[in-house]
Amino acid sequence: MYITISPQKISGDYSQSVGDFVSYLEKENEGKPIAEQEHFFNQYGEEITGSEVIKEIDGNTAKLKKKEPKFYSITINPSIRELKQLQDPKRDLKTYTQELMKDYAKAFHREINGKEVSVNDIKYFAKIEYQRSFKGTDKEIQENQPYATKILSFKHEIRAIEEGRNTGNIKKLENQISRLEKQAPHQQNGKRIVRGMPKEGSQTHIHIIVSRKDMSNSVSLSPGGKHKASEVMMHGKIVKRGFDRNGFFAASEKTFDKLFHYKRNYVESYKARKTLLKNPKIYFSVLSGLPTNERAVAYKLLSKSGVPTMNIPTNKLQLTVKAIKKIKQGFDKAIQSSSIGI
């Protein structure tokens, strides 16, 4: 499970309307019959339209300044192994989202009218998506870019020749393009990976749009605050503040495991991921000390995610900085692809 929380920005500025983001999330419905389209849902209902989402989120920004986020995006990325545990993926993921948003509310160190924040205070809309496309920021696109530039240059030459603006051997240029297409380092189904190409494999994930303001449009609830849990004096009153991200991420795993009787391996846990980032030696020590069966599953999961398991340290002598750095590169790639929940 890999979960992210982020404010929505356009060219460095916070979005003043959720409209563009909703349009982006609606693209997967284009060309599909109404019966096959995925609609937004929340704690109270389903079949919610994009226009309703825009109206509710944009109308819930009282007293927020232009430089403050109006809404946040939570993205839930289940691993293939987690998805296989579901009996009815669509229904199960909706149920999980509704339970996860209870964890989200509990992560706030806040009170509204003297009561702890609950899911009934959170204005949100969620949507399940089944596809992902390669973006310009993806490693595959960036590393293929030199080849893409040369291919485009050759295509311009061919066009100039065809239009009589230049002379040259079109067949030779076409052969060069064909060779570059095959030489590009990142391929999918025998084709060079390009921007906008759908990613293969299971890409099911959930997008959640969360209003910065509570349901009453009077209290600001920011999951982006630096304060985990503190109290400050405001208008002569002691006010709680903060959001426990670590607690939320950990709780989201426990909720999934409890709902679907999922046996989470060490390498899939948020705790393991944090340990890897903060203290790799402890991470690899725990990994090598797992019971035989669990360790075998862990290695299998890592191997499927592209992590070079042959180089994973198995004792203290092998826990060198060089070895750890090499393995962490593999982990970073697995995290970016959301292929395992580390």
Rank of each mutant, 00 (worst) to 15 (best):
residue 2 Y to F: 13
residue 9 K to Y: 07
residue 15 S to K: 14
residue 27 K to N: 14
residue 27 K to C: 08
residue 42 N to M: 05
residue 47 E to I: 03
residue 47 E to V: 07
residue 56 E to L: 06
residue 56 E to C: 05
residue 74 I to S: 00
residue 78 P to Y: 00
residue 79 S to L: 00
residue 85 Q to S: 11
residue 90 K to F: 04
residue 93 L to H: 01
residue 103 D to R: 09
residue 105 A to E: 01
residue 106 K to F: 06
residue 106 K to E: 07
residue 106 K to M: 07
residue 114 G to Q: 08
residue 119 V to C: 07
residue 119 V to M: 06
residue 120 N to Y: 12
residue 120 N to K: 14
residue 122 I to T: 01
residue 124 Y to P: 01
residue 124 Y to M: 03
residue 141 I to A: 02
residue 142 Q to T: 10
residue 151 I to S: 00
residue 152 L to I: 11
residue 154 F to D: 00
residue 154 F to Y: 15
residue 158 I to E: 07
residue 160 A to Q: 15
residue 163 E to V: 07
residue 165 R to D: 09
residue 173 L to G: 07
residue 174 E to F: 10
residue 180 L to P: 04
residue 181 E to Q: 13
residue 182 K to R: 14
residue 190 G to S: 10
residue 191 K to Q: 12
residue 192 R to I: 09
residue 196 G to E: 09
residue 201 G to M: 07
residue 201 G to W: 05
residue 209 I to L: 12
residue 215 M to Q: 10
residue 219 V to I: 15
residue 223 P to Q: 04
residue 224 G to N: 14
residue 235 H to F: 10
residue 236 G to R: 10
residue 244 D to C: 04
residue 246 N to A: 05
residue 248 F to L: 05
residue 256 F to K: 00
residue 260 F to I: 08
residue 266 Y to A: 02
residue 267 V to H: 01
residue 274 K to V: 09
residue 274 K to M: 09
residue 275 T to V: 07
residue 278 K to Q: 12
residue 288 S to V: 04
residue 288 S to I: 03
residue 290 L to Y: 05
residue 290 L to S: 03
residue 299 Y to K: 11
residue 300 K to I: 01
residue 306 G to E: 04
residue 308 P to R: 12
residue 309 T to F: 06
residue 310 M to S: 12
residue 312 I to R: 01
residue 314 T to H: 11
residue 317 L to P: 02
residue 328 K to M: 04
residue 332 D to G: 06
